[in-house]
C-alpha cells in the first residue's frame, strides 16, 4: 500500500515500503511549460530533506528539484534524458525523477497529503 505526499515546492513523493519515488506535480509541470531537459542525481548520492537533488528545464525556465525527505538515491529515471516530454505527459507517473531510500520516515510523514496540497494550491 503506497502513500503519496507533497511539498510546498511542488514535488510529490510516494512511499512503497522503504523506497520512495519522487517527481514534480502536475501543477509544477504545467507552470514550467514544455520540459526539454532534466539533470538527474547519480545512484548512491546522499540528499538531505530540502536539498537540491535534480534540475528540470523548459525553454524559458529552470528549476531545482529538492528532495522532499532525506535519504540515498537508489535509481534515477534515465528514460527522461531522451524523452523529457514524459514529465509533461505523465508527471505523477512515468515522469518520475528518482527513487530514494529514506533515512528518516518521519520527514515523509510531516509532508502534505493530497487534500492539504490541493488546499495549498488554492491559496496560491
Amino acid at each position: 500500500m503506497s502513500e503519496v505526499r507533497y511539498t510546498d515546492q511542488h514535488e510529490w513523493i510516494r512511499l512503497d515500503g522503504d523506497e520512495a519515488t519522487v517527481g514534480i506535480t502536475k501543477y509544477a509541470a504545467e507552470s514550467l511549460g514544455d520540459v526539454v531537459f532534466v539533470e538527474l542525481p547519480a545512484s548512491g548520492k546522499a540528499v538531505a530533506a530540502g536539498g537540491e537533488a535534480a534540475v528540470v528545464e523548459s525553454v524559458k525556465a529552470a528549476s531545482d528539484i529538492y528532495a522532499p525527505a532525506g535519504g540515498t538515491v537508489t535509481l534515477a529515471n534515465s528514460a527522461l534524458e531522451s524523452a523529457p516530454s514524459k514529465v509533461n505527459e505523465d508527471p505523477e507517473g512515468e515522469g518520475w525523477f528518482f527513487k530514494l531510500k529514506l533515512s528518516n520516515k518521519d520527514e515523509f510523514a510531516k509532508l502534505m497529503d493530497a487534500a492539504a496540497y490541493a488546499k495549498f494550491l488554492e491559496s496560491l
Binding site: 526539454v36 531537459f37 528545464e57 523548459s58 525553454v59 524559458k60 525556465a61 529552470a62
Partner: peptide, 11 residues
C-alpha cells in the same frame, strides 16, 4: 536561440 537555460537571464 536555444539552450538558454544555461544563461544568466534564466539561471
Amino acid at each position: 536561440l536555444t539552450l538558454s537555460t544555461r544563461e544568466q537571464h534564466i539561471r
